[in-house]
Design a protein around this nucleic acid. Structure first.
Lengths: 222, 222
DNA sequence: ATATATTATTAGACGCATCTAAGTTTTTAT
DNA sequence: ATAAAAACTTAGATGCGTCTAATAATATAT
């Protein structure tokens, strides 16, 4: 139950999230993401390496150790449980919860998050469809299919988002798209990769970049 | 809406709470309460004075300015709203909430605390009977009467506590005493100041120190 | 293959919040 | 009224997390 500073927790969490699709995080990329200068990140990597949280060698890319992944997972768990709590219990919109969760994820109180978990019925996903790590910090990372990989005629259900920035979430709100929304693919436009879809009784056009950031599955009973 | 560090917030809050019955807080007392050394506190007082949050002159006792009181009130508001939320919404025991609220009081999110306030129906007291400051940081500090000031034959209702340390709260739990508990004073023992009371159908003996830390009012309809 | 650009590291500084050691002021006790 | 004790301040150091400036290593381009 080792405790790390707020700051170290942010490095670990960010490193974890960046490693999901990259596996090879550079000092520069991490500095960009955290809004810090490279020397700051270098020196923190030396400290995290001393704590055995990252594997770090001069001029080489950074990797989380198993210990580091676990710690990161526990923070992400607190973040995502909090987001779920804010939406389900406190009735915030899914576009409002990130900044609050960003702060509450650093609260040190196992019983507090245990209670959240119980009240929510042990959820496995957050309000944006991202998986909630288990109590040991382990993430069950399911394979996710972007909407643009599906084909015309298919009926799909939205299960997750690649980004949760609030401008994207507000855009989806305006389009009435959320987790669980069922869309029928009318056609895919070859030229620009946009998709024409049926959403209930209405028709909808989504651009390629948007379709890449929506994850979907074939709708049940299709 | 000036933002202060976590650390400064703790100084302000502590100073406020200590000023309620003392009005004259010394560097030494504040250092004791915060678990810090005197020079640390001296140097912070110089900074808070520069921020116009306290009135401080060398070798003189410390006073919060109006600005300081307001800031402190807003932190105490967040603390007490949180305690209320933890008890009423999340169903924690009143002895469990202090440490969690101690952390959540530093969350910077007006909308988060606004939502709590709404969900709780704009409560005026926390789970220990302490007043919740209003949105401007103002505390309506009602006069409070310790149980030991009442007389035999009187029927009183418990309305607050002088201390909220969890050993005291657990003691009260064992005695089945909480806010709203009605007690009939059978007799006051002259020798040691203890009180014999009727609590429902059972009889109860409370020592003088306990009676000094329970606030009460004459029960309605008596 | 070498020059250039990019990325990363080292060295040294700074602000914050803390400490210890030493000295000063105020209070208390005799 | 003076000595002793307690409270307080100053000076200077430390750790954390950040920065800038200078230097070194790696990657890119011609």
């Amino acid at each position: 139950m080792s405790l790390h500073s707020h700051t170290k927790e942010n490095y670990l969490k960010t490193l974890y999230l960046m490693s999901i699709d990259k596996d090879n995080v550079s000092i520069n990329e991490l500095a960009q993401k955290l809004g810090l200068k490279m020397p700051t990140v270098t020196s923190m990597m030396q400290k995290l390496a001393a704590d055995r949280l990252v594997k770090y060698e001069k001029y080489k890319p950074i990797h989380l150790t198993e210990k580091g992944k676990k710690e990161a997972g526990l923070i992400i768990r607190k973040h995502r449980l909090t987001e779920m709590f804010l939406v389900e219990v406190m009735k915030f919109g899914w576009e409002e919860v990130h900044d609050i969760a960003e702060q509450i994820e650093h609260i040190n109180s196992p019983v507090f998050f245990k209670k959240m978990d119980e009240m929510l019925g042990f959820p496995e996903h957050d309000p944006h469809g991202s998986p909630i790590p288990d109590r040991t910090g382990n993430i069950k990372q399911a394979v996710r299919h972007p909407l643009c990989d599906f084909n015309s005629g298919e009926s799909v259900v939205i299960t997750g988002l690649a980004r949760s920035e609030d401008d994207f979430l507000k855009f989806l709100n305006r389009k009435n798209i959320g987790l669980g929304t069922i869309l029928n693919i009318i056609e895919k436009e070859e030229y620009d990769g946009s998709m024409r879809l049926k959403h209930g009784k209405r028709e909808l056009l989504l651009s390629r970049p948007v379709c890449e950031e929506l994850f979907a599955e074939i709708a049940a009973g299709t």
